[in-house]
């Protein structure tokens, strides 16, 4: 199962990002675990400065905006290495 982390200090865009990922995963019937990571220390550890950002299995895949549906689907369907 993919471990997805949405990085961000709890702003409305971060919430939207997490909801969108959960919704799309549900539609595609892909099991995921989405968590919101708000600790500044962890966010710094990813080297992220613009939130919301998304990390999948500890790999940063996106930062700076709410990702669009096509991007999310691509992440979800990609084989985990």
């Amino acid at each position: 199962m993919k471990q997805i982390k949405v990085l961000g200090s709890g702003c409305s865009k971060c919430k939207k990002t997490a909801e969108l990922i959960e919704q799309l995963a549900h539609e595609l019937a892909i099991p995921v675990s989405v968590t919101k990571e708000t600790s500044p220390e962890v966010i710094m550890g990813f080297g992220v400065m613009s939130t919301p950002a998304v990390a999948i299995d500890e790999q940063l895949v996106h930062s700076g905006s709410v990702p669009n549906a096509a991007q999310i689907k691509e992440w979800l369907t990609k084989e985990s290495s």
Partner: peptide, 16 residues
Amino acid sequence: PFCSCSSIPVFLGFTS
């Protein structure tokens, strides 16, 4: 341009 909700990550990014 940056969203004020990003000020903490920006602060830490600059600092680190």
